[in-house]
Structure formats: structure tokens, C-alpha cells
Lab assay of single mutants.
Amino acid sequence: MSIQHFRVALIPFFAAFCLPVFAHPETLVKVKDAEDQLGARVGYIELDLNSGKILESFRPEERFPMMSTFKVLLCGAVLSRVDAGQEQLGRRIHYSQNDLVEYSPVTEKHLTDGMTVRELCSAAITMSDNTAANLLLTTIGGPKELTAFLHNMGDHVTRLDRWEPELNEAIPNDERDTTMPAAMATTLRKLLTGELLTLASRQQLIDWMEADKVAGPLLRSALPAGWFIADKSGAGERGSRGIIAALGPDGKPSRIVVIYTTGSQATMDERNRQIAEIGASLIKHW
């Protein structure tokens, strides 16, 4: 067993022997301040990774656009098919120029040779490549099948209805392509620590998230040296922004954090800054 596999296998073990965790309302004060600064709703939840206990939450059962955070769930569904012998990570998928959609920095470079399922998941999570996500959605049967996968996990809230990039439209009061912070946090925890996926697939999923290259201005910008984070960000229309993450000190994750916002007129930089400040408060009061 590799060191990384050992780390993920012992996530519940280490967490069980940690000192009790206590909620700190100071972080919620910052979440509410972010709402004021952005002029928009902000949803927040913080779960203990081992027990699933909610440590703090704000608007945990209000719907927010998922945006690209759905790509972690998508690759979880792909990995479940791999575990069941219905898919192979090494299978190569070929596609054409007509398949390319807006923001496809990886797939646009491989029109000639195609990409493997493993490479597509890596591109979808680490670079948020939209064509990679659409190609992977095709392998599982489309958005409705991802929703069905989530329902089978016990998540009857999260739903995907459309493809990239239309799913980022974020129309107010439109339930399409949305989740709730509580539902997303619980589902992410199941994917990373539950028995739904094999140990190898859980490790692969967290490795992809740990290698995320496009979430630097968010929670990662607030992390002290030595902290662990595996995350996936999302951005959408109407001032929408979000991030889902597993993080913790001492090089291992111990909490799940989900943050979503929508309806702001603020710039992307300002949305990023507010999420980073929430992260800084979380870490300060850990």
C-alpha cells in the first residue's frame, strides 16, 4: 500500500482519535458579512469528516447552483462504474471539434489522439474542462443518470439537468442544476469515506481534487503551510461562485467545507476574496 493510499485508508482512524471539535460562531459572522459585502445569498456548511456531524452552517438547506462543483460527483459516478466493471479508466475516447464547448483548455489539445477516461476526469476536476465533463456525462448516460446515481446514494436534493455550459445559467428560483450545502457536503463525505467506492477509487477521487489547479484564489489562499486540501470550485452566471473541499491540518483532511453564493453584482475577484476570507476565519478558529 502506498503512503497516499495509507493516508486515505486511515482518515477515519486518525479522526477518531482527534480531540473533540467545537464550532466557532466567528466564522458564521464572516459568512454573514460576506453576504453584506456581496449583496447576495451565501450558503455555508462545515462537517466533521469522521462523524458527519454538522459543526457550523448557514442557509444549509437553500438551493444554490452547483456550477462546476458537480464534476466531482460526476467522476465519482464514473469511478463507481469502474468498480462495477462497467468502465475502464484506460479506455480512450475520441471526439471532434464539434464536441468542444466553451472553456476546454485540455480537451482542445487532444482532438487528434483523444483522451482516456482517467485523463478526462483529471481534466474535468483539476482544470474544470467543460468538454471533458460533457464527454464523461455521455459515458454514464447524461445528466439524468448522474441525478439517479445521487438518488441511489441517498441524495434526493442534488440534481443535474443540463450539460456544460448551460448548467451554469443560475436563474433565480430555478431548481435545475442545483444542490443544497448540506446535501453536497453529505454526498461528498460519502464519496470520500464511505463504502460506495473502493479504496482505490476513493484515493483516485481525492487525488484529482488535491491536484486542483484553478481554485488557488479561494480556500487555498488562506491555508497555512502543512495543511491538506482537496477541492473543486465552480463559477456561473449572475454572480455565482462555489467551492467544495476536504481539508485539515497535519497533512490530512478532517472536515468537509461547502460554500456557495449566487445573485451578486460583485466582480469575480471580490467573490473570490470573500470566500478566501471565510476560509481564513475557519482556519483561525479551527
Rank of each mutant, 00 (worst) to 15 (best):
G52W: 05
T107D: 01
M180A: 14
L192M: 15
T193V: 15
N168I: 05
A40N: 08
E119W: 02
D161P: 01
L28G: 07
K213L: 13
F6D: 05
E164T: 00
A222D: 09
G226R: 10
L188K: 01
H151E: 12
L150N: 05
V72E: 01
G239Q: 03
G263F: 04
P224G: 07
P249C: 07
P65C: 04
L192K: 01
G43V: 00
S104K: 02
S104G: 06
G242F: 00
A211Y: 08
A280N: 13
Q88N: 13
P60E: 14
N50E: 14
N98I: 14
I140M: 07
T267M: 11
A40Q: 09
Y95A: 04
K32D: 05
G194C: 11
A182N: 09
S254Y: 10
I256G: 02
L197E: 04
Q86D: 13
G248A: 03
W163K: 11
G76D: 01
A185C: 07
I283R: 06
H94R: 13
P12L: 11
A245M: 04
L79R: 01
C18P: 05
D250Y: 12
R159A: 06
M66I: 11
P217M: 14
A235I: 04
R273V: 10
K30W: 05
T187N: 11
S2I: 15
L218C: 05
A84L: 13
E169N: 11
H156P: 11
L197F: 06
N272A: 05
L218D: 03
L167E: 03
D99P: 05
L55F: 10
G85P: 01
P25Y: 09
R118S: 15
G194L: 09
D113P: 07
R238Q: 12
Q97A: 13
T193G: 15
P224W: 03
L55E: 08
L135W: 02
W286S: 01
Q265G: 15
L47W: 03
E61T: 13
D174V: 04
T107A: 10
H151P: 04
E35Q: 08
Y103K: 02
M1A: 01
I275N: 01
T116W: 02
E210T: 10
M115G: 02
G142A: 04
F22V: 06
P65I: 03
R118T: 14
P172H: 10
A245W: 01
E87I: 11
R176N: 08
A266Y: 08
I54P: 15
L135H: 04
S254M: 14
R63H: 08
A123N: 04
I259M: 08
C18V: 08
A230R: 02
F58T: 08
G234F: 01
L38F: 08
P20K: 14
R41T: 09
A245K: 00
P25S: 11
